[in-house]
Amino acid sequence: MQIYLPIAEISVNIFLILGMGGAVGFLSGMFGVGGGFLMTPLLIFTGIPPAVAVATEANQIVASSVSGALAQWRRGNVDVKMGTILLGGGVVGAVIGVQIVKILRQIGQVDLIISLSYVTFLGIIGSLMLVESLNAIRKSRGAEGGAPTRRPGQHNWIHGLPFKQRFKRSKLYISAIPPLIIGVLVGFLAAIMGVGGGFVMVPAMIYLLRVPTNVVVGTSLFQIVFVTALTTILHATQNQTVDAVLALLLMTGGVIGAQFGVRVGQKLKGEELRALLALLVLLVCIRLGYNLIATPDDLFSIGRAIGGH
């Protein structure tokens, strides 16, 4: 059954979109990751204009992260002060990102930049995940022991920065600058890639800021909900690229898929699955990269004139 997407201005198979939402939702439920970095490329492969894919995916992430954020909030796993600083940075990043998308659309380079960003990020994340999971597999098989020699109390360069703040929930006394910068970066990525940015924020909070793991997920979800909500509104007003019909379909598939993913994920062994996810991420990366390198069928393209004269 075909459905016409009013903003993307193409007809798509409704079951294909629901299925994609479900599959990515399943993976994100299973691994506890937001699915944005897989969903946006899949939408682009389906023929959705990249700018529409990015803005619509930001809208979907609001739905997929709001219930998680609320649950974490109830359990007291949100460091509100840290979250607010991350959010403040996120707002700045999102505003800049949406403006950049607007300019790129006017000069006809938005598709290229979105694809390039994805190739870069998926390449890095996929490789890191693959190495990490392969190491974990080797360790669990060989059982050679040797826990990681990371000392949580260790001081690093972050402690030399000014504007120190006390973060009670995280039991930290660190500068406000690093969380602010992380927030800006995550907001920027949300605007130009349509991702929640958890894959950047979570490791940065754990390894750079040394935020306790039980607070990390809640605090980052808190930031993601507000930043993706703002990104959605900004894209809607600046670029008119949020396709509400597409978003609704993705949400429907996504929330259902995620519920099953969580259940399956609890029963299965992590390392092998993580290695598989890493391979999937690399596959998507290679496909996007191939599209950039391969000679297109038609060197010409047309688009409606945006802004300018």
Binding site: N59, A229, A244, A247, L248, V255
Partner: peptide
């Protein structure tokens, strides 16, 4: 944009 966000929040809450 606001409606799109509210719809997403509602969808997330209903699903959970």
């Amino acid at each position: 944009g606001v409606i799109a966000v509210l719809a997403a929040v509602l969808a997330g809450l209903i699903a959970s």
